[in-house]
């Protein structure tokens, strides 16, 4: 788990074939460095699947979206997978608006809750 930076907390869990980073709070330009560090560290472990769980986030802005797009790019280049959880709230609306939901592997795409 990372130290809370600003309004962002990140919990990390590792399974056999995947690393999950669960983000709480706000993912925006002021909290981006912390998130970037965690993602970079997770990428260094080269898990077959890296999951960014953004569902618990209260807020995400374009810098958070950029983080996801960059992680997707890194995974594609390395022949690995990047997946996200977006929940049904603000985060989902942001990714929907940007036309990204269909471009990402969204694990909770069809979840009712």
């Amino acid at each position: 788990m990372s130290e809370p930076s600003g309004m962002l907390r990140i919990d990390r869990t590792s399974h056999a074939d995947q690393v999950v980073l669960i983000m709480h709070g706000e993912l925006a330009s002021d909290t981006l460095p912390t998130a970037q560090d965690e993602v970079t560290a997770a990428e260094a472990d080269a898990p077959p699947v890296l999951v960014l769980d953004l569902a618990p986030l209260d807020y995400v802005d374009s810098s958070g979206v950029r983080l996801v797009l960059l992680a997707q790019h890194v995974a594609e280049e390395a022949g690995r997978r990047l997946a996200v959880r977006l929940g049904r709230g603000h985060t989902r609306r942001v990714f929907d608006m940007l036309g990204l939901t269909s471009r990402l592997e969204v694990l909770d795409r069809d979840d009712a809750s």
Binding site: D96, M97, L98, G99, L100, R103
Partner: peptide, 24 residues
């Protein structure tokens, strides 16, 4: 609309969203 917030149309006092999906 390329990933932009939905435009609004105001007719009289009625505001309508122009929901339009698109990629950034």
């Amino acid at each position: 609309n390329g990933g932009h917030p939905a435009p609004l149309v105001l007719r009289g006092d009625r505001a309508e969203w122009v929901e339009l999906p698109g990629t950034l």
